[in-house]
Design a protein around this nucleic acid. Structure first.
Lengths: 350, 350
DNA sequence: CTGAAAGCGCTTACAG
DNA sequence: CTGAAAGCGCTTACAG
């Protein structure tokens, strides 16, 4: 704690405007604007006078004034579902690098993976708080599409699977990673090394991207000739906690699975912990696969899938920037494929 | 790829303004404003006419116009150094919860742990892109203080150690966790269980918060009567990669340390991996401590320190909100203490 | 090289 | 209950 009775902001309550600077420098506001933005001709002497006045008044331009006139914020928003999932770090990095090079600043927004949060992000674009939006969405609802249609600035949708909108004439570019193929491949891989009892950690129910993953699980089972068993499917949440309780549940079943496919790495990690805490071994007692290729999976030796998130971010940003600079190309749907990284957790044939 | 020749945004090029709505509804802009914001009296019939017009024109208010007039953005920025460090997730969560309850939206900004990035964040506050700023800073430079002084909106500084500014009459609230005490305690703990050769993973050189941690390491050695050995100190980066190469280097020394204190968990984890990859055991061949209490440390059994990051975020947001609602209290410096979590990696007496 | 003026899209007293 | 008008802080043709 500190004292001294110093009051908050007592001397900075009203920020100087360009008018104040003009008055102090004895010139017009137009000239101040020219001088400060180094646009057009301003006599060196006048410029110095203006700079000194600005300095003295602690002048900082108010962005809202400029935005209103120029109709540009020079801000780009990246909206992610989940700040506690490392998978988005790579995206952030990719986006950041691209837009910074073009003089834009990055604003992150956090949707919590809920439609409402995603709509909030879109609204910020509608209200022109930012010039463009890259939205990592978990929903595929019509209302989202409708709201994006009302934006005057461009949006790029980043999808962890996106079959539903491809080619649907949506008013935005998309960049997706085919998560369906990831889960399908995982189950196929487990079947190939001999597993017939394959449990599934499904994530949060009613979240569209998890619905798609679940479909992949079922399809892969079917194609491998393995009957579907509802009791092997655990819905909870896509978090580590969700995975933990799922792992616990599945591992304690009388007729327990010999392998578990998790619909993302967070769950795989939680599951790994649960099995360990119950005295089981991965692999040995149970095989395990995840999806996202998180760092920790490399350390623990859990089979997973590289999601090329950095590339996804980069490409999304590139598309956005190109729209922002006026491109009128027809909208693009870009796809990536997850790449399996086989590790100890699923290395041995049953 | 999709075709169909649909051109980008052909029908939404110019967004409707409040004037357009007023014209279509046959009323004045003032009345439109009243109706849309439900302020003052508007006849039900008129209101409906306006709503219909707004609907028809796909009207969305332009935030810049409103901001200019109201001098409020209703946006709060949280600037973090590093998006790949889980430690900030808890902060985000804490901040988000507090401000959302008061009708503010959260914008994240990413400083990369560099002074330049921190200054960028401060500038966005100066330009009034946001109403308030919570800055997790890694620098203690005078220029940062000067720039914050030029802001008309409030800032709260979140410090991973902050002795330098405490009581210095700075124009902002601070919330800090005493990292010095964390590192000091870690070294003390290692000494107590018998270690005399304690290596140190120091983080990025010339980053102020890491300088303080290093001082704690030296002080603790001294107080334990252990001579300082420069070759046991590894400067690199605060990342997992940095820890990995540090762990490699220290573990391969002829007269290697029997314990390693890492200045954060990311490095501890990297070190853990390096030792494992070299065939060593933690503990057994080497003891290890980290700082931040990341999830993965719990899984790997690495001794670490709870940094109360959620609480830090909550408190920072509370202070900011209180300034935003006009509080003129003198500035506060709030301190937390890291709490050691002893785990396997440093459990056994040498 | 500089100034006067219009206008970006909104809100808010103030009249009526 | 509604309208006319001022003004938030900036930029940008346009004159001179």
């Amino acid at each position: 704690m500190q004292d001294g009775g110093k009051k908050a902001k007592e001397m900075t309550n009203r920020q100087a405007s360009i008018t104040d600077v003009a008055r102090l420098a004895g010139v017009s506001v137009g000239t101040v604007s020219h001088a400060l933005n180094s646009v057009g001709y301003v006599k060196q002497e006048t410029k110095e006078k203006i700079l000194k006045a600005a300095e003295e008044l602690n002048y900082v331009p108010n962005r809202a004034g400029r935005i209103l006139k120029t109709r540009q914020t020079r801000l780009v928003m990246l909206a992610i579902p989940d700040t506690s999932n490392e998978i988005y770090f790579g995206m952030i990095e990719g986006v950041q690098k691209e837009i910074k090079a073009l003089g834009y600043s990055l604003l992150l927004y956090y949707t919590n993976g809920e439609l409402e949060g995603e709509l909030d992000a879109v609204r910020l674009l509608q209200e022109r708080v930012v010039d463009g939006l890259i939205l990592v969405h978990f929903s595929y609802k019509q209302v989202l599409l409708d709201e994006i249609r009302r934006c005057s600035g461009p949006a790029v949708l980043l999808g962890m699977c996106n079959h539903l909108w491809a080619g649907a004439g949506h008013p935005f570019d998309t960049v997706s990673i085919d998560v369906y193929s990831g889960i399908y491949t995982a189950v196929q891989h487990l079947a190939k090394i001999g597993h017939r009892k394959i449990g599934y950690l499904a994530g949060r129910r009613n979240v569209d991207v998890y619905g798609q993953r679940f479909a992949a699980y079922r399809d892969a089972l079917k194609d491998a000739g393995i009957p579907y068993r509802e009791e092997y499917v655990y819905w909870n949440d896509w978090t580590q906690m969700g995975g933990y309780s799922g792992g616990r549940t599945l591992y304690q079943m009388k007729d327990r699975p010999t392998a578990i496919c998790a619909s993302n790495d967070l769950q795989a990690i939680g599951c790994w912990e649960a099995v360990r805490d119950l005295g089981g071994k991965v692999p040995g007692d149970i095989a395990l696969t995840g999806l996202d290729n998180l760092n920790i999976c490399k350390i623990l030796g859990i089979t997973s899938f590289d999601m090329k998130e950095n590339l996804m971010g980069t490409e999304a940003a590139r598309h956005l920037m190109s729209r922002l600079s006026g491109s009128q190309m027809s909208y693009q749907d870009l796809y990536f494929r997850p790449e399996i990284q086989v590790r100890d957790s699923s290395l041995y044939t049953l």
